[in-house]
């Protein structure tokens, strides 16, 4: 549930984040109307508390998956909730790139698509991987809330047994597993970032 959501969120978040960055005034595809629209969408997405979003998009979930209950259904709100977050992280990773890089890219006669594929993405890769890891960890967190609408998973166990049944042992156990999971994710992420970072 978490990993699949992260996959979708990362893909759409990357596209959205790229779009957000390249439509800025001094970028390769400046378009102030598109930029403002994207800003608005992302800001709204970031403002809605996840637990409310979960319930609010039940109709959309039903339309895509056919039901609003269960692990697969939970993927929809998890993905939608994470996309604006991921987009902002990707935007930040792209903003880190030195301005002069664009000058060199233009001077070499690269097209906008070539700039995105040959310059932006490879150069920002450490930042992009970092964004994906952060998204993943955030989703582990959100998945607990998804448990409240029957999303299943560890979060669900923690809430049902730990919170609703006051079974402290169970709650602590699930939290421990979650902590270990996040450690593993961070460790793997750290390794990936290190491998691709030649700065």
């Amino acid at each position: 549930m978490v990993f699949v959501s992260a996959l979708f969120a990362s893909t759409f978040g990357l596209i959205l984040g790229l779009a957000l960055e390249v439509t800025k005034p001094h970028q390769i595809l400046p378009h102030s109307q598109a930029h403002h629209l994207l800003e608005m969408i992302i800001n709204i997405g970031r403002s809605i508390p996840f637990i409310i979003l979960l319930v609010a998009i039940i109709p959309i979930t039903r339309w895509i998956v056919g039901t609003s209950i269960g692990t697969v259904a939970a993927i929809v709100p998890l993905t939608i909730g994470a996309i604006p977050f991921t987009a902002r992280l990707i935007e930040a990773a792209l903003m880190e790139l030195p301005e002069g890089l664009l000058d060199a890219a233009h001077a070499m006669g690269l097209s906008s698509l070539q700039i995105i594929t040959k310059v932006f993405i490879p150069e920002a890769l450490p930042g992009i991987f970092n964004s994906i890891i952060m998204t993943l960890v955030t989703l582990v967190n959100y998945s607990a809330m998804a448990g409240t609408i029957g999303g299943g998973g560890l979060g669900d166990v923690a809430i049902r047994y730990g919170y609703q049944r006051f079974d402290l042992k169970m709650m602590l156990l699930t939290v421990l597993i979650l902590v270990l999971l996040v450690q593993l994710i961070q460790y793997a992420g750290h390794y990936l970032v290190k491998k691709c970072n030649h700065r």
Binding site: G100, L101, A104, H106, E123
Partner: peptide, 16 residues
């Protein structure tokens, strides 16, 4: 532009 080479003060190489 490919027939006009350019070099810069801060080099602007691709670090990756």
């Amino acid at each position: 532009r490919r027939k006009i080479g350019m070099i810069f003060q801060h080099f602007n190489l691709l670090s990756s």
